[in-house]
Design a protein around this nucleic acid. Structure first.
Lengths: 205, 205
DNA sequence: GTCCAACCGGAATAAGCGTTCCAGTTCGTT
DNA sequence: AACGAACTGGAACGCTTATTCCGGTTGGAC
């Protein structure tokens, strides 16, 4: 009735806890390493453990990947929350976008190998990140830094997905990121030729 | 010395050719179907053939996927070439971007399952598409429809990758696409506050 | 120091998948 | 109509990988 294969309670013995952390760190390392193959075997070797131990510590390979990915994502979400408290909403948005791209470029997490996995923790963090971005945009809009004639969803998705794509791009570089953010911010700025509303895009939804 | 495992000459017998096409169509169907599992078994069932036949027709599963993906991509590349001959470069670019997103949203090709595969045909088409987009942007820039203070690579990558991301987004919709393109085009337009050059982004590369 | 439950890891297990085999079928030529 | 080469597909093979087994090891309470 309850969780059938509960994600394993906190292990009790000291070595178990230590090994759990080793496995987690190993997974994080490999997740970030570009060409790495993400098998239990590989992770175990990276951690200096047996494959069985690695799996047991999390119950499932997927659970381990989930935990590792979430761990990597955590500081970014943290930063997003901080950005929400800064003074100038427009500047905060711009700065955070740059950070976002940087982060995603540095950790090329989620390298496509983990597409189609069940990653509840990660999904939650992604939602939080998305919500924070949404709030960031709303703040910027209220402050008049962003045009109001575009449906809010556009900007959220645009920035969330596009930054990811840019960061993943093979020729990613600081210049590219900066140029991208400039274009986006200029495009999102209230446009001169129109009042608050512009008929070009109709937020019919 | 020559190609070691040549991609199989055109099969000679009529039924072989027919089956080859069946396999190709089946693969295309499954490539576009969102949740589909892309195994030889699945493709064979979809085509009403045996697994062995499907593989034999292309020599390799990868070759089949490659051919199918390339087949799907083909018309898009065609459209890109046409867009290059239209009169108003700015309008052509805008129109093509909308088509691009539409296309990618409709066929959610390359669903991540085929990340890390060797797809020569597809790679070639992607390059062509990319080149066409590059040319389209150059034309728009020359026509004064696009700002010149951003490094050209920014725009190419931006539009190539970002449209892909937008299209893949879960809440993709025509409104979203339209809003996105509007923001992009406005951001790419020559900006009022600056001359031809703006110090904000430095094309140091 | 003792002892046992918790834990480890190499090996066995199991499942998925691409590819190849081969006996039977079919096309197309004569 | 007949025959050989081309082709088919179910079954077998081989490989990769997550997961489980189990005999041996170790942490930590007493």
């Amino acid at each position: 009735m309850s969780t059938p294969k509960a994600a394993q309670q906190q292990p009790r013995r000291a070595d178990a806890i230590r090994n759990r952390n080793l496995a987690l760190e190993a997974a994080k390392t490999l997740l970030v390493r570009p060409g790495a193959t993400l098998t239990v075997e590989t992770i175990a070797r990276q951690a200096g453990l047996g494959a069985a131990t690695v799996v047991r510590a999390f119950g499932t390979k997927d659970a381990l990947i989930d935990a590792a990915t979430a761990d990597l994502l955590e500081p970014l979400v943290q930063r997003a929350r901080e950005a929400l408290t800064e003074d100038d909403p427009g500047a905060a948005l711009r700065a955070f976008l740059l950070e976002l791209i940087d982060f995603q470029a540095a950790h090329r997490v989620m390298s496509g190998q983990l597409e189609g996995l069940q990653l509840p923790l990660t999904a939650t963090l992604r939602t939080e990140l998305r919500d924070a971005l949404h709030a960031m945009l709303a703040r910027a809009r209220d402050a008049g830094a962003i045009r109001t004639d575009i449906h809010p969803a556009v900007t959220t998705v645009l920035l969330g997905e596009a930054t990811y794509a840019i960061a993943r791009s093979s020729e990613s570089s600081p210049e590219l990121a900066a140029g991208f953010v400039t274009v986006m911010m200029d495009g999102l700025r209230p446009q001169p030729g129109s009042g608050a509303q512009e008929p070009e895009a109709r937020p019919t939804v």
